[in-house]
Amino acid sequence: MHFAGALLEFFNAIKDSGDHQILIARYIEQFLDEKGGFRYLVHPIYDWKAAYAKWFSREYLQQENLSFHPELKLFEDTYFVGLSCQLAKDIHYIDSVVYSWLYNENSLVRQNGKSFEHQTALWAKENRLFLRVIREKQPENLKRDLENYVIDVYMRQRKFPPENLPDFYVAHLALLIEFSDVWSGYSEDLQAKVDSLRDVAGGQWQGVDTSGFQDFINNP
Rank of each mutant, 00 (worst) to 15 (best):
I91C: 02
I91T: 05
I91G: 01
I91M: 08
I91H: 13
H92K: 09
H92R: 14
H92N: 00
H92A: 01
Y93P: 04
Y93T: 02
I94T: 00
I94L: 06
D95H: 13
D95L: 12
D95R: 06
D95P: 09
D95M: 08
S96E: 09
S96C: 10
S96F: 04
S96H: 04
S96P: 03
V97G: 02
V98S: 02
V98H: 02
V98I: 04
V98C: 09
V98L: 11
Y99S: 02
Y99W: 05
Y99R: 05
Y99M: 10
Y99V: 00
S100K: 14
S100F: 11
S100T: 00
W101N: 11
W101Y: 13
W101S: 07
L102H: 09
Y103G: 00
Y103A: 03
N104K: 07
N104F: 02
N104V: 00
N104M: 00
N104T: 00
N104D: 05
N104P: 01
E105Y: 04
E105G: 00
E105S: 03
E105W: 04
N106L: 08
N106A: 09
N106V: 00
N106C: 03
N106G: 07
S107P: 06
S107R: 07
S107N: 12
S107T: 04
S107W: 09
L108I: 10
L108W: 12
V109Q: 08
V109I: 13
V109A: 07
V109G: 01
V109M: 10
R110D: 07
R110A: 08
R110W: 12
Q111D: 02
Q111T: 08
Q111G: 06
Q111K: 14
Q111R: 12
Q111L: 15
Q111W: 10
N112D: 14
N112P: 04
G113I: 11
G113S: 13
G113W: 09
G113H: 11
G113L: 12
G113T: 11
K114F: 15
K114A: 14
K114T: 14
K114M: 15
K114C: 14
K114N: 15
S115P: 05
S115Q: 14
S115V: 15
F116W: 15
F116R: 04
F116Y: 14
E117C: 09
E117S: 09
E117H: 11
E117I: 07
E117L: 15
H118N: 11
H118R: 14
H118I: 03
H118M: 12
H118G: 01
Q119K: 05
Q119Y: 13
T120F: 06
T120G: 03
T120C: 13
T120Y: 08
T120W: 04
T120Q: 13
T120S: 11
A121Y: 03
A121I: 02
A121F: 03
W123G: 00
A124R: 04
A124E: 06
A124P: 07
K125R: 08
K125S: 01
K125G: 01
K125N: 01
K125Q: 10
K125E: 05
K125Y: 04
K125W: 12
K125F: 09
E126Y: 12
E126N: 10
E126T: 07
E126V: 05
N127F: 14
N127Y: 12
N127A: 01
N127E: 09
N127V: 03
R128L: 05
R128W: 11
L129D: 08
L129P: 08
F130S: 07
F130H: 06
F130C: 03
F130G: 02
F130I: 06
F130R: 13
L131M: 05
L131E: 06
L131I: 09
R132P: 04
R132A: 03
